[in-house]
Amino acid sequence: MSSERSYPVAKDLRRGRGAGSNAAGRFERLAHEPENDGWDIEEERAPVRTEVRIEVPRRIITYNRSPDLPFDRSINPYRGCEHGCIYCFARPSHAYLGMSPGLDFETRLVARPDAPEVLARELSSRAYRVAPLAIGTNTDPYQPIERDYAITRACLKVLHAFRHPVAIVTKGVLIERDLDILTEMARDGLVRVGISVTTLDPVLSRRMEPRVPSPARRFEVIRTLSGAGVPVRLMASPIVPGLSDHETEALLEEGKAAGAGSASWIMLRLPREVSPLFQDWLAEYYPNRAARVMARLREMHGGKDYDARWGRRMRGEGRYAEMIGARFKLAARRLRLDQPQPLLRCDLFRVPPKSGDQMSLF
């Protein structure tokens, strides 16, 4: 599947989208550019629409060995994300599908309706060893198309039936729909949730995260989940130098007031195709701050836009990174958001009996 829109797209055709172009992925040998054919007839221009394709996965659990991550396994019900966050570090993953990390990532989505059945099969394997599983580590499990496909909810039902621990990360309000499952899992110490909030500024948020619920609405989600007994962590991520870094303390205060029990932060990451996409976005919306933002990032990554080395990619290094880390640490300590999240229980895991299985007499 090659990208069909590899050139800059007019602003009026991409309303509600984060990327301004659809540059071909790094694995593509060909790129498409519009060419004036000499005719004076104005061609009809269609706005960018969301498309959803179906994938039948052979496996759904992905394992990692990264020392930067607090989990070694995850599942992703969807590929691509309609939220359209311009800074999303997962954008380059779309290049593996032969599509663009630009507009394709947020408009040409892949749903995996068979994920719950595949998950149940993998968890039932005699070789499987239980450990906390993460959902939402690459693309958001509660992005808008979850309303129609409900794959995340179906996966949660499987995890609940197996009494399997899970950690969820999202910006979406659809998670409130699944409170019936989450509250039961929370009573048994089987779930915790991270809600990502990047800024308190609704204008900046709408520009950076065009189809994400407003910051105020996400704090309502924190309030709802925590009020239902679900452990919630405020994720101040990413912190964008020169745009949102001044809000660090205010974000934590809002999170505490909403009921978050802990907080974490990650610095803006610009791997591979994300860097040119983000720089084009800066030039369009914040041209007077673009040089400052990129100078800060390069200062933290040895002169590069991004340093992918473990131990450095999430926070950066140098005086600026240390300053942000110190500010966050002080504010979190003052608000008692520096507490570790509760450990998820693994001792309750069991493979539920299937219809026709011989039941134990003892």
Score class of each variant (00 low, 15 high):
C81V: 13
Y96S: 07
P141S: 13
A332S: 14
A260F: 04
D140A: 10
R217M: 09
E42S: 14
V193M: 07
R177N: 11
R315M: 07
E122M: 08
E284D: 08
G259D: 14
R129Q: 09
A263K: 01
R345I: 13
D280H: 11
S21P: 08
S237I: 00
P342M: 03
D178E: 07
R313F: 07
H94I: 00
G136F: 11
E51Y: 10
A154H: 11
S275V: 04
R350E: 12
E176I: 06
N138V: 15
H164C: 11
E284P: 03
G18C: 00
A326M: 15
G311E: 03
R327I: 01
T248D: 02
R112G: 01
V158F: 04
H32N: 12
R17S: 13
S355I: 07
S355M: 04
P141N: 13
Y285T: 08
H301A: 11
S2V: 07
A90G: 09
L243E: 01
R187D: 09
A326R: 15
G325R: 12
P144G: 03
L97C: 02
P276C: 10
R217N: 10
S360Q: 11
A131Y: 04
D305Y: 01
T224H: 05
G18F: 00
E209C: 02
G20Q: 00
R65L: 13
E253I: 01
E299Q: 06
L234S: 07
F27H: 12
E146P: 11
R187W: 13
R292S: 14
R73V: 12
E43V: 15
I195R: 00
R289E: 15
E82I: 15
R14W: 09
H83K: 01
E44F: 04
Y149H: 06
V232Y: 08
V221A: 07
G25H: 09
L133F: 12
L30F: 09
G80W: 06
R223K: 15
H32A: 13
F328A: 00
G311Q: 04
L69F: 07
S125N: 03
R289T: 12
V293R: 07
T152S: 11
S100D: 00
D114V: 13
S360T: 02
R45T: 09
I145Y: 12
T152P: 02
E322L: 05
K304L: 11
P8W: 09
F349V: 14
T198E: 09
V173M: 02
Y87K: 11
G84D: 01
A332N: 07
P113R: 12
L13G: 09
F362M: 14
W310E: 05
C85A: 14
Q339C: 04
R192Y: 03
M208R: 09
S262D: 00
A161C: 10
Q339I: 10
G311D: 05
L243V: 08
G194L: 06
P202G: 12
Y149I: 03
L282S: 06
M1W: 11
Y320L: 03
V118Y: 02
